[in-house]
C-alpha cells in the first residue's frame, strides 16, 4: 500500500505552567514583613539550638515551637555558589552572574541570593558577603528587598 503520508511535524510546544497561591504561613510572614523594614529576622530552637533564617514556626528537627524572633545583620559567608551562564525566559539579569547559598552569621540555615559587585571568577566559598538593600520605595515583603549580596570590604584598615 502506497499511502501519501502527512508532512511530519518536527516540534511541538510543551508548555508547563501552574498557577499557585503561595501561603507563607505565620512564621515566614514574620520574616517577610521584616524584609520590608530591612531586617533579617531569625528564630532559635530551644530544643536543639538551631537558628533558622527564614524561620518557620516549629523546628523541623524537634517539632518544638521556636523562640522569640530576633534580628541578624545579614552578613554571612558563601557556602556554595554557581555561575549562571545560560539565558532563559523571565531572567532578570544578563548572564553570567552568581547565585550563592549564603549562611548568615549566627544562622544555621542558608539563604539563596545573588552575589554581585564582584566578577564571577573571583567569587569563592567562604568569602564574606553583606546584603545590599533596595531603596525605600522598592521595599516589600519579599527577598527582592535585598537587591543582592556583595563582598564585605574590611573596615578601612587596608584601604
Amino acid at each position: 500500500m502506497t499511502e501519501v503520508l502527512p508532512e511530519p511535524v518536527t516540534t511541538m510546544p510543551n508548555p508547563f505552567r501552574m498557577d499557585y497561591t503561595y501561603v507563607a504561613g505565620t512564621g515566614r510572614s514574620v520574616f517577610l514583613r521584616g524584609l520590608a523594614e530591612r531586617k533579617l529576622i531569625a528564630r532559635r530552637c530551644a530544643g536543639c539550638g538551631q537558628v533558622y533564617l527564614p524561620p518557620p514556626e516549629f523546628c523541623s528537627r524537634c517539632l518544638t515551637e521556636l523562640d522569640a524572633p530576633f534580628e541578624l545583620d545579614g552578613r554571612g559567608v558563601v557556602s556554595t555558589f554557581c555561575v549562571v551562564s545560560f539565558p532563559f525566559p523571565g531572567q532578570r539579569i544578563d548572564p553570567p552572574y552568581v547565585v550563592a547559598h549564603i549562611q548568615p552569621h549566627g544562622a544555621g540555615t542558608r539563604l539563596m541570593h545573588l552575589v554581585r559587585e564582584i566578577g564571577p571568577e573571583d567569587v569563592h566559598i567562604g568569602m564574606e558577603v553583606e546584603p545590599v538593600w533596595v531603596s525605600d520605595d522598592e521595599l516589600g515583603t519579599s527577598l527582592l528587598s535585598i537587591r543582592h549580596f556583595r563582598p564585605v570590604h574590611k573596615g578601612g584598615a587596608d584601604a
Binding site: T10, R17, Y22, V23, G25
Partner: peptide
Amino acid sequence: TADSLSAPYTVEFPFERTV
C-alpha cells in the same frame, strides 16, 4: 493564619520538544 501573607505564584517552563 489570618497573619499569614500570601501571593500569586506561577511556575512556567515554555518548552518545545522535538517529536
